[in-house]
Write a protein that binds this DNA or RNA. Structure first.
Lengths: 355, 355
DNA sequence: CTGAAAGCGCTTACAG
DNA sequence: CTGAAAGCGCTTACAG
């Protein structure tokens, strides 16, 4: 435990430039009130010495507080998907609160555009220093973004992306590619002569075609294959009660008796698993998304073969740190941050780390 | 950007206890020289107020430096596996160097027990504040550990574990389970009548039976299956030059013409891939470990079907933070930190995040 | 436009 | 055994 290695301090720069530390601070933070000449001189020395600010000292001296606002769908139960990004956000919060960061949540209802608009108003009123948002409703999201930009508040997209916006970063998956992965896995498991079924729960559809992209990636995989192409049928369900879904599945399986693989494009694979269990179907491979408890149960029992996961906790964690790095640490951030597309199965589920 | 929320400071405790902050600091850090009575009083108030030290201020005021020593196999080329844990360690280093943490590396040669012993001597001489080590040679590792314990230096195991030691943490995979996962994947891809081959590169064997555990997990999976059991044959190769390996593979495939799946228990799957390519074998599923460049190449070309990965960068990163959290942040750490067992394939390799 | 001083919460000698 | 003071590198008014 020797003495600390000496690093370049503001004081050193001030000395070398023949000015006071106050002046150095002014050019460092662009606070003006410095003559062009001294500014140049100081800037030159800063560069020469490769000065790195001590963010510990900076944070300690500063009495600034930062408020990060999170604008995401409300998790309806403790098992809901959106709890997972929140877990990651909360972990990051614990680590950066010593830097004066507060987090406030603004929820909306996925199925209620109105709640999105209402909640967004409160978000803007909050006047946060940074925002993480899931831009579910396209037009309305762009409206929010405009206002954030007007107030020069940086924002990060999570889960869904809107192209060509001025977001600091997008953190989420590549839906197209995850569909392709699902296709590949079923292609490996189900012999070529059999058919596959895509189940799309339409209610969950958002403006951004998240789920459609998964479906497109899936079908594109088979379109690219050589003849004879595998038969893929599709079911769009409105996510009604079980008996409705079961009827829909009965119908389509009756018409296509060679369906041996089912791909559910969202986290509701457990609903299809329940159907398979009830009908006691033996040789159907089922693949879905997200390690929520109900899915995990059927993965362990063997009815769901694979779950594709996207480390939602990590997404929340990274989104929070993206704001932190930009606003407080003043480090570079990356604009497109695609999450891993993970394959979870019975054999690795117990070790799957989402954070 | 409001004023910072007031938190409990040493000053507050001192005031409430009617002592100076120096005294509070003494009980906080157990530096002695405090009467039992005042100590009790201060301790009680600390608890009451749920005091959380400000590690920013603490680190700034302290002139302490910390040296973390890393004791791992030397990466022989820029493509070697052990570069990956180092990447993670270096990332952590960048983040915690402002707290006065230095990192020093002590390498050994995986195939040379002597270099392990020699390097370990230098490690001990270094007198670090914390150690991350890959305990490859069992007896020799225990010798190192004894000395670390004598000097009260905390240590973290990475990659390999030794049971029932006083390590702060083990960070690595569950080898048995990763073997089971490999078995499952081949079981899905290769039809039941065909055979499977395990390739064990014996040279890489370490005292700790890392690779044997993978093999055991693999065979145990099939042993548990109902009759008729799948046939699994095994090849132990000394990892000689290509023509030797190719001869070995020729022989075993000639004797077992129905081998349609190969499991390589270490990162050398690319060597078998090269063989498959050369012999132009069409319908053999190959599965191996670790996303090193040579493996990635064959994964993309389709010769390797799956790679099982263990986020080695994350392991290095987490090991470093385990020391940091224990020594500097004084937070709790977990003793067994099993890494995810990830499945990487052509369709998700481009998005696979190891850190 | 510039500098000197106080202070962030903690640690570290030093004096008594 | 205890307290007062200086200092870590930075920020923030304030004086000129």
């Amino acid at each position: 435990m020797n003495k600390k290695k000496s690093t370049i301090r503001i004081k050193d720069i001030a000395q070398k430039a023949g000015v006071s530390i106050g002046t150095v601070d002014r050019v460092l933070h662009n606070r003006g009130e410095v003559s062009e000449a001294t500014k140049e001189k100081v800037l030159k020395i800063i560069k020469e010495l490769n000065y790195q600010p001590n963010i510990l000292a900076s944070s300690l001296a500063s009495k600034k507080n930062y408020n990060f606002a999170i604008f995401i769908p409300k998790p309806l139960t403790s098992e809901s998907y959106w709890n997972k990004p929140m877990t990651g956000i909360e972990k990051a919060r614990g680590e950066i609160q010593q830097y004066g960061v507060n987090i406030s949540y603004h929820f909306f209802d996925l199925f209620d555009k109105n709640s999105f608009v209402e909640s967004s108003k409160k978000l803007i009123e909050d006047d946060p220093q940074g925002v993480i948002l899931a831009p579910y409703f396209l037009k309305e999201s762009i409206e929010v973004i405009r206002q954030l930009e007007q107030q020069e508040i940086p924002y990060v997209f999570i889960d869904s992306n809107i192209k060509e916006q001025a977001q600091l970063s997008y953190i989420g998956q590549n839906s197209l590619q995850s569909g392709a992965l699902a296709a590949r896995l079923l292609d490996l498991c189900v012999s070529k002569q059999e058919s596959l079924l895509i189940v799309n729960f339409a209610n969950d559809q958002d403006n951004l075609n998240h789920l459609n992209q998964r479906k497109d990636g899936f079908t594109a995989y088979f379109d690219k294959q050589e003849e004879p192409k595998r038969k893929v049928v599709s079911l769009k369900s409105n996510d009604q009660e079980d008996h409705v879904l079961h009827k829909e599945l009965d119908d389509i399986l009756d018409k296509n008796k060679d369906i041996k693989g089912i791909y559910v494009t969202n986290s509701k694979a457990h609903r299809v698993a329940k159907y398979i269990e009830k009908r006691n179907l033996k040789d159907i491979f089922l693949i879905g998304y997200d390690l929520i408890p109900e899915n995990a149960k059927h993965l362990r029992s063997g009815i769901i073969e694979f779950l594709i996961c996207q480390r939602p906790e990590e997404q929340g964690y990274n989104a929070t740190y993206t704001l932190f790095n930009h606003i407080i640490a003043r480090k570079e951030t990356i604009k497109e941050n695609y999450t891993s597309i993970d394959i979870v199965t019975k054999e690795n589920v117990d070790y799957y780390k989402e954070l």
